[in-house]
Design a protein around this nucleic acid. Structure first.
Lengths: 162, 162
DNA sequence: CCTATAACCTACTAAATAAGTCAAGTATTA
DNA sequence: TAATACTTGACTTATTTAGTAGGTTATAGG
């Protein structure tokens, strides 16, 4: 699970579609100018997103992209995984230095941690983000789901954004 | 918050120290051979880790690195942030296309999401990982803390690693 | 039918970052 | 005082990200 600007672009772009698709397909050119991401880069990203059925396309004038399924059924993890390559293999695969299991320990702990992050991102859907964008203050339900045991002092107030 | 192999190297390496420091300082050469990370790259990483007081060094023969504080007081987020540069600025800063607040929407949602991930990683300490490495099966307490509402079918059984 | 629009596709390139190398130090202590 | 191990900085290389250029196909609307 990699978290880079690439995944962020993908999430941003698909959220842009989600927010506006009521009025029909959204063209990449529109997303490009709104989100300030180059058109060609968006083409690369949406090609992958489409391959994973996260979006569907409408060709021709007035065409563009629509969500491939309901926002409830699209989670953040799958968006990020869709645009990142097959998630490169474990470091030790094939190498001799993991034969006794001992040296694999931290390696697998990291993998485990990575799974936790992925689970976490899987638990957040596009619908959740849409909700947040329509909610002036974060609801308690969301809050609990997102934050676990931590202090809420840095919780984002979406008010100023809308 | 970026999640790349760089941060993974850092977590892996510092965990290696945590697991073995009972027998004294751990040299980078040892970590290098055990974890298969180049010595010089480790030097770069540990230089930053030390700057953030996550580790402390012991010079001279038999020297190496020790944790800078208790495993309970070191969380995963600070390890990753320590080796990644000051967390690059927001895309729209200074640019004209965010003036009306509208275009910033998804941008801030992403930032918010990033905060959630950071909160999550902040909630996991080195001590948690150490515990896990000593526990054959994941305890319920850990499980609840880590996973939220999700299915546990892909939960890692550490048994096979130890 | 024609034309503009927009998806789709391929190949390439520039920039940034990650990862690793090299070399010449300095401090510590057995 | 020699061995060990950290420190520092300048380099190189590889990979990934981001952007360009140049097309083709599909289709809505005049």
């Amino acid at each position: 699970m990699k978290l880079t600007t690439k995944g962020r672009y993908a999430v941003t772009a698909i959220l842009d579609v989600a927010l506006r698709q009521k009025s029909g397909p959204i063209s990449l050119a529109d997303i490009s100018s709104r989100q300030d991401i180059s058109l060609s880069y968006l083409e690369q990203l949406f090609s992958k997103l489409k391959k994973h059925q996260l979006v569907k396309s409408v060709r021709g004038p007035g065409g563009g992209y629509l969500l491939g399924k309901s926002p409830v059924d699209i989670n953040i993890a799958e968006i990020i995984l869709a645009v990142n390559e097959p998630l490169d293999a474990t470091r030790c695969r094939g190498k001799g230095n993991c034969r006794d299991g001992e040296t694999c320990l931290t390696h697998h702990l990291w993998q485990d941690l990575s799974h936790q992050i992925q689970n976490f991102l899987t638990s957040i859907t596009l619908a959740n983000l849409l909700e947040r964008s329509e909610t002036k203050y974060i609801s308690e339900k969301q809050d609990a789901q997102f934050e676990g045991q931590h202090s809420h002092k840095d919780t984002l107030i979406l008010d100023r954004l809308l």
